[in-house]
Amino acid sequence: MAEHEDTTHVEHEHTTHSQIFYIAIGVALLILTATTAAVAFVNLGPLNPVVALLIATIKAALVVIFFMHVKGASEKLTSAVVVSGFFFLAILLTLSLADYLTRSWR
């Protein structure tokens, strides 16, 4: 963190995109929503949940990266907090499911 940054230039350090870009991301999210809803009516067997959750993760990633501006976050500490949040969520889900998914394997 530079100590003598000009306070009047705070707004330029933020990496926002153009309005058209945001609307394009929104359209992409709407198309993905229509796709996932349509795919739900097609019987893909065990692949149905996989496809649905994959599309959901793509949508969530688009929102986090482009709407929540994590790439523009200059502070490393903030990035560490964000990553740790998803890391502990991953621990919660993988360790719990590693148990419950394998109980029938005996």
């Binding site: 100590e3 003598h4 350090e13 502070e75 949040g85 919660l92």
Partner: peptide, 30 residues
């Protein structure tokens, strides 16, 4: 020290809160 530091501090606090929200809903998802 400056406006950027103030903004980063507020952003950090907000993300900390959001992490607690992720864990809260994560428990229900689990």
């Amino acid at each position: 020290a400056d406006a950027q530091q103030q903004k980063n501090a507020a952003s950090l606090g907000m993300w900390l809160f959001l992490v607690t929200e992720i864990m809260f809903f994560g428990g229900m998802f689990c």
